[in-house]
């Protein structure tokens, strides 16, 4: 029954486990708790929206680690004055 249920729902919890582990390990290794990124995101939204209109819901703040370099990636979609997203830039 299990197998059938899974074929039907297409659930692959091993994959989910792997994705969640990847995420949590990036933060564990860098000693940057995921909640800190939320705080940074709030700061970024406050700072940039004070100057230009932005799509607040579209803001992405990500931590990335490659070899020995770590960086915070910030993606802030701008809004045109009419409230539409500017340009055709897609978020990753």
């Amino acid at each position: 029954m299990n197998i059938l249920k899974q074929l039907l729902s297409g659930s692959n919890t091993a994959h989910t486990a792997k994705q969640r582990l990847r995420f949590v390990l990036i933060h564990d290794r860098a000693e940057i708790p995921p909640g800190l990124l939320e705080l940074i995101k709030d700061d970024v939204i406050a700072a940039i929206s004070a100057r230009v209109p932005i799509d607040r819901d579209g803001v992405v703040v990500q931590f990335e680690q490659q070899n020995s370099e770590s960086r915070v990636l910030v993606d802030v979609p701008l809004l045109a004055l009419n409230g539409e997203r500017k340009g055709a830039k897609r978020r990753p």
Binding site: N2, I3, Q6, N12, T13, A14, H15, A17, K18, L21, R22, L25
Partner: peptide, 17 residues
């Protein structure tokens, strides 16, 4: 369970760690 994709495989774990 690995086959049913409900348990991390050896490859998954090597890759993550």
């Amino acid at each position: 369970r690995v086959k049913r994709q409900e348990m991390l495989s050896t490859d998954d774990i090597t890759e993550v760690l």
